[in-house]
Design a protein around this nucleic acid. Structure first.
Length: 430
RNA sequence: GCCGUCGUAGCUUAGUGGUGGAGCACCCGGCUGUUAACCGGGCGGUCGCCGGUUCGAAUCCGGCCGACGGCGCCA
């Protein structure tokens, strides 16, 4: 007889015989009866092992098996109100595949202990739900790009470009030369423009900033896209369609996980284009009206983002930031050279910026001027300027933080839970 | 980088100057319907590290290490 997934076994009728395999999630026993909740990747099911219904050695082994022992069982489905989920398995034969030692994670856990035991905590219902949500998020993203004629490409994460405006990089010895871990694949994506036109990539990005917040990871999953012949308004349309598609997909495919995490799937079902656009100038006025002491050129911090999103249920774009606060490659606005053609997408509920995007500057001199202002070594960017020298076209792109998106979708309060092995300040183990 | 909180058994914690206590986990015994099962017993401590004050330090002082929360930076 074939093994079935627990989710399927739970749909069987009274009296049907099934075989399942998995891990002991919870266990209680009295002298002659053992109740265990068994877990597999599809769900949980209670099994009952009674002394006089199975082989004596099998019963002894079942008694000895601690939480997280792996097992295979065969038995009969019974409907019973007392069982979690309404159905349980009356075991006729049981085999312990791997006896577990004392499982270190018990009912009381501190954040520190759980992070030290992340490889084991990954088995928890909470992280399982989050990992399923993240997998479906990525599936939705891939499906959307496929359906919209984007090519997925694979840029390197080892680079000689110290890159992106001031953000700190990890450097290392590359056979005698200094090299860096990439903070963005953007410039490489731009190189695909004349051949593939619409490209996207999912790569790890690294930020060596000593950030201590619930929305920063040292290493994160960076989704980036770049489109030829697009201005920033159309770039924003791509972003809002992509994000809306993801919301619809996970609301449909992960409603169980979302609810377990405290997110009502209806919150995501109502996310549809278009998203509101507010210029930096307008946002500044709104914040000043709300009593914030801000002047032109000041960047928005967490309290400002929260204030701007207070009454919003859908994401919002903040556009046209002052040029001096943004990267050298963002196109200066034709109608106002003090600003650039960029947009930040802010998620509702204080989750903050999930996407940063812009139209790319095509004027080499303007880029050189701005790079020099930042004290960058212009020579390193010669290859990038080549992209403008040989048939440049208007183009735009954006970068999305997968873990930040997942945090918002799943109502997760700390970004470390949106990634299996979080790299944080002073933590890269396990 | 800045501000704040904390470090006692495998885990969670009580203990503010006089021989460190509990709950959970684990082990032994009991129990044929448990839901964080229950009942009885047992095992388990360089009180983060180094130095100082004191007759005496988990407790007071100094330094170091580590963790967590928040801000800034960003996705």
């Amino acid at each position: 007889m074939q093994f079935e997934k627990i989710a399927q076994a739970l749909k069987k009728k009274e009296g049907e015989q099934v075989r399942i395999r998995g891990w002991i999630h919870r266990k209680r026993s009295s002298g002659k009866i053992i109740f265990a909740v068994v877990r597999d990747s599809s769900g949980l099911m209670q099994i009952i092992v009674e002394k006089n219904k199975v082989d004596e050695e099998e019963f002894k082994a079942a008694k000895k098996a601690l939480i997280e022992s792996s097992l295979e069982v065969e038995g009969i489905i019974h409907e019973d109100e007392r069982a979690p989920g309404g159905r349980e398995l009356h075991v006729t034969s049981i085999r312990i595949v791997g006896f577990a030692e004392d499982f270190p994670i018990t009912e009381n856990q501190s954040v520190e202990f759980l992070l030290d035991n992340r490889h084991l905590w990954l088995r928890s219902q909470r992280l399982t739900n989050i990992m399923k949500l993240k997998a479906q998020t990525l599936r939705a993203i891939r499906a959307w790009f496929d359906a919209n004629d984007f090519y997925e490409v694979t840029p390197s994460v080892i680079t000689m470009n110290a890159a992106e405006g001031g953000a700190t990089v990890f450097s290392f010895d590359y056979f005698g030369q200094e090299a860096y871990l990439s903070q963005t694949a953007q410039m490489y994506l731009e190189a695909f423009m004349p051949s593939l036109e619409r490209v996207w990539s999912l790569t790890p990005s690294f930020r060596a900033e000593k950030s201590r917040t619930r929305k920063h990871l040292i290493e994160y999953s960076h989704l980036e896209a770049e489109e030829a012949w697009l201005h920033n308004e159309e770039n924003m349309q791509v972003q809002e369609e992509l994000v809306s598609h993801v919301c619809q997909h996970v609301a449909h495919e992960c409603s169980e996980q979302l609810e377990a995490l405290g997110r009502n799937p209806d919150d995501l079902r109502m996310i549809e284009p278009p998203f509101k656009r507010i210029t930096y100038r307008k946002a500044l006025e709104l914040l000043q009206q709300k009593g914030f002491d801000l002047a032109w050129g000041d960047d928005f911090g967490t309290p400002h983002e929260r204030a701007l999103m207070e009454e919003e249920e859908k994401p919002v774009f903040i556009t046209k930031f002052p040029a001096e606060s943004k990267a050298f490659y963002m196109k200066l606005s034709p109608d106002d050279p003090r600003t650039v053609e960029c947009s930040d997408m802010l998620a509702p509920e204080g989750y903050g910026e999930i996407i940063g995007g812009s139209e790319r500057e095509e004027d080499i001199n303007s880029m050189i001027e701005r790079l020099k202002k930042d004290g960058a070594n212009v020579k390193n960017y010669e290859w990038y300027f080549d992209l403008r020298r040989y048939g440049s076209v208007p183009h735009s792109g954006f970068g999305l933080g997968i873990e930040r998106l997942v945090c918002w979708l799943g109502k997760i309060d700390h970004i470390r839970d949106a990634t299996p092995f979080p790299r944080l300040l002073r933590r890269a183990y396990p």
